[in-house]
């Protein structure tokens, strides 16, 4: 078991920055991002034996973390709606500046301020490179909705960055 754990730690070390970037953009705060990272790697550990090697490990892990982030968003949306909790965008911008020194902080902040559905499709499409059809499948919505969310997001981003 220790050998397997050692191998898994090597996987973690190689991929954790990529995973943290996705997690941070979804969660918009450090603590939430850390939760997603942990959740994603626990899920990966759990399902690693079933990884069949047909895709690259990084692609598979990427899919695991996106699922973990989307699941968390669904759970948090319900809880946050009940508690009426606001996201602290200043704090998020600070964390982006620290964790991604090369990031365009104004752009990241504008994306973080998008309405929920639009924000998720922007992250998946522009930052993670998913085609609209796959985003639709993952989010359980129709492709046309993804495209209209992207269109709306682009308009809002242009206004915010003007």
């Amino acid at each position: 078991m220790h050998d397997r754990r050692g191998e898994f730690e090597a996987i973690y070390r190689e991929h954790h920055r990529r995973v943290y970037a996705i997690a941070l953009r979804f969660a918009r705060d450090r603590e939430g991002a850390e939760e997603i990272v942990q959740d994603a790697f626990v899920r990966a550990w759990r399902s690693l034996p079933s990884f069949n090697g047909n895709s690259r490990l990084s692609t598979w892990l990427h899919s695991v973390v996106v699922n973990a982030a989307l699941d968390r968003m669904r759970r948090r949306s319900r809880a946050e709606a009940r508690l009426d909790r606001e996201v602290d965008l200043d704090r998020y911008a600070d964390e982006i500046g620290r964790a991604m020194p090369a990031a365009d902080v104004d752009l990241e902040r504008a994306v973080a301020a998008l309405p929920e559905g639009a924000r998720e499709v922007v992250i998946l499409h522009y930052f993670e490179g998913y085609p609209c059809a796959e985003i639709a499948e993952r989010m359980g919505i129709v492709e046309g909705t993804v495209k209209s969310q992207l269109h709306r997001a682009r308009q809002l981003l242009k206004e915010a960055l003007a």
Partner: peptide, 21 residues
């Protein structure tokens, strides 16, 4: 398109992941 795809966590998260596993 220029947005970075990696971010450095503020601390080493591996001990938490290992404990969770």
């Amino acid at each position: 398109a220029r947005a970075p795809s990696e971010a450095e966590p503020a601390r080493d998260l591996w001990p938490d992941v290992a404990r969770a596993i």
